[in-house]
């Protein structure tokens, strides 16, 4: 028996919004410690890692480890049926063929149950073995809305954005046929609110170029968290991380573009 309950179904809606442009289907690995998804996009250029800890749920029970293949589009359709204030419960039996989504209104007067067929995902199991923490040359924390805005604005100029980070701050630039754009963000000396701060932790400066197409998928996670963390080192994938309240995080890994 697997059962996971979240008082705020809105969190799950936002999680789906954050992955639906990159993944068509994904395996949700459920265990005693929580729910995990690790999947690459179709082009194998980016990787999504979603982690929802069991202690972050309002109720969580997982008697046996389960791997449930789900269509992200179908899941999105079902979550659209949840009211903004509804509670959501995910439920499945051991060796399930279906998963149930149960939505309950705050006054408990409405109870809706949706059943979704699971997909047989016989595709490769990623088996990511990376457990050691990489030490990054630069780690930037900045407001997620600002990051979304910069990615959107600079995408108008070209297909990629260059991130140049030094101890003063981070510079984003793009260029294309009709001109070029640069946005510099200085490290905030004393931001009034933590969520408005720009913080740079630097070992050595980095300069990396990334595809706008993927960045614009990652920023869909913006509504999950006021701050985004960008971890960068030369010649390794960017890690773009959004915390999901007290329950977990979503991390996107994107390989930089290299001039051959």
């Amino acid at each position: 028996m697997f059962e996971a309950r979240l008082v705020q179904s809105a969190i799950l809606k936002k999680v789906l919004d954050a992955i639906k442009d990159l993944l068509t289907e994904a395996t949700f690995e459920c265990s005693d410690s929580g729910i995990q998804v690790q999947a690459m996009d179709n082009a194998h250029v980016s990787l999504v890692s979603l982690n929802l800890r069991s202690d972050g749920f309002d109720k969580y029970r997982c008697d046996r480890n389960l791997s449930m293949g789900m269509s992200i589009a179908s899941m999105t359709k079902i979550l659209r049926c949840a009211g903004a204030e509804d509670t959501v419960t995910l439920r499945a039996v051991d060796n399930p063929e279906n998963i149930m989504f149960i939505f309950e209104s705050p006054n408990k007067e409405k109870l809706a149950e949706y059943e979704m067929k699971l997909i047989n995902m016989d595709q490769e199991h990623l088996g990511i073995i990376k457990t050691k923490e990489t030490s990054y040359s630069c780690v930037v924390k900045m407001p997620s809305q600002e990051f979304s805005r910069i990615c959107r604005d600079l995408s108008q100029f070209g297909e990629s954005i260059t991130f140049a980070c030094s101890k003063e701050g981070i510079k984003f630039s793009a260029s294309g046929d009709f001109g070029q754009a640069t946005v510099k963000l200085a490290q905030t000396a004393d931001a009034d609110k933590e969520e408005e701060a720009v913080l740079v932790t630097m070992q050595e400066p980095v300069k990396l170029t990334f595809s706008c197409r993927y960045l614009n998928c990652f920023v869909k996670a913006g509504p999950l968290c006021a701050q985004v963390q960008l971890s960068m080192s030369n010649d390794v994938p960017l890690v773009c991380e959004y915390k999901i309240g007290d329950i977990g995080h979503i991390r996107y890994y994107l390989a930089p573009k290299i001039d051959d």
Partner: peptide, 14 residues
């Protein structure tokens, strides 16, 4: 593609 190789080398080092 090079980007793909970087990602694969990062996650699945030999």
């Amino acid at each position: 593609r090079t980007s793909q190789k970087i990602l694969e080398r990062y996650f699945w080092p030999d």
